[in-house]
Design a protein around this nucleic acid. Sequence first.
RNA 1: GGCGGCAUAGCCAAGGGGUAAGGCAGCGGUCUGCAAAACCGCUAUUCCCCGGUUCGAAUCCGGGUGCCGCCUCCA
Length: 501
Amino acid sequence: MPLVLYNSLSRQKEPFQPLEPGHVRMYVCGVTVYDECHIGHARSAIAFDVLYRYLQYRGFRVTYVRNFTDVDDKILQRAQKENVPWNELARRYMEAFHRDMDALGIRRPTLEPCATQHIPEMIQAIQALMDRGLAYAVDGNVYFSVSRFSDYGKLSGRDRDQMLAGARVEVDPHKQDPLDFALWKRSREGEPSWESPWGPGRPGWHIECSAMSQKYLGTTFDIHGGGLDLIFPHHENEIAQAEGATGKPFARFWVHNGPLTREGVKMSKSLGNVLSIQEALGRYHPEELRLFMLLGHYRKPLDFTDRGMAEVRSALDRLYTTLKRMDQLIQACPPTDESSEMEGPRVGPGRGVLEKVRAFPERFQQAMDDDLNTAQALGYLFDLNRVLNQWLDHSTFSSAEENIALLRRARRCYRLCGEVLGTPAADPEAFYRQKEERLLASLGLTREEIQRLIDRRSSARRRKDWEEADRIREDLHRRGIQLQDTPEGTLWKVRTDLNGV
RNA sequence: GGCGGCAUAGCCAAGGGGUAAGGCAGCGGUCUGCAAAACCGCUAUUCCCCGGUUCGAAUCCGGGUGCCGCCUCCA
């Protein structure tokens, strides 16, 4: 079964095969580095990170390019406002971007080219358009002539009349046609500029993506991605530039992720409801954010809510609680002989687990093959999680070698998700420790103090002084710690119903 | 106005012609000194409404209604 992806160009799902067998070439529009990134960027980044990881899992070599727009009106404006050099501002937010992406567990693309490093390529591309009569220069500016490119509108599904009827087309006296867009902008005083056949200036926004993607991935490449809101005009213009200049198809598959709203409304600076990735990471574990994004389909609109995040927190905790339980059992047993053919119990309650474990990789792949249905893939994991707990709870469960062997095998299903989806990816001990660190710091509690209280409570319990024991438990609960009495002693963890991490 | 998308339990959400995954929340039970965790059971005869096709539709078609995105910088 092939991987099927929804192609915005054809508006339907299509079986995906790269042009060169075994090698996928993919380009995703990155960010303009003029401000902190928000959770909308995170959604997009996570969606394409999963595509990148899954293609690799499917055995493809992937050349993944994601650009940085490091020269642009917004950067210039902001730099002026802050009175810092524009390239310094760009560098600052580039670093912030990497910091955020790394924190979210997003794998670095193969290449991350910057616009300013590719001015010659862009000039060359513009020249090609001039040569073909698809562009014209006016007063140091160069524009793309939309009316001379007959395929214009094929991605966004618009035609010329509709676009004009939209009426909100910018007025620029230099343009021959209001629909034309800038390929090269003449620099004003104090702005960065590069020499060009049309005079000193800087590139228009769209040209960098078609120039850089084609430089690194070829005239025609496999996947071009980005947010849904980039379809028009950005991606439409990229197609016009690229196909206009080469006469050949540009990207074969266009993949777009859906929009993210916050508490039902679009995030916008004027509303002041933009949640930066930094702020989000202050409140939620990176894997909570990831799981939240992946519990829905990447193309569907998604509403980021506190309530939704609280639900996901509980859900992720459920997985890690089971994982911890499994790991403890596995670690308590000597490593089994890898060559043993033993795969688990064929009778009793373990049989159901064996069946689910066996079926898991195929089911997972079948879900992911269907246009990255991460929600369904995770559904299978939660389903497995339940039968696993069921088995571990069963009175007949023992640490028999064959049981541990099955547990090891089940563990690999979680690892598969961790590898491809990025969650649950952590070692359970590390996961809880990480969550603890932050809460403990914010509450001024230390591990030692918690342990001291637990010890005090344990002796109270031995005395059957339930009042004292409950008092200590309630006190810790109020301070964010949840106790759990087990036959092996009292465990504690950070309460999952808390708002902060 | 144009283009596109979405409507599935209290909430989130997958599915998509053959009789409704999964998560969260709630209630009842098992376990526990009591809790917690986990497990079991219950919670959509029904998938926005109205028509049609079909042996059969939540799934297909037509028509409504509602919400959202894009058409200006935007992931």
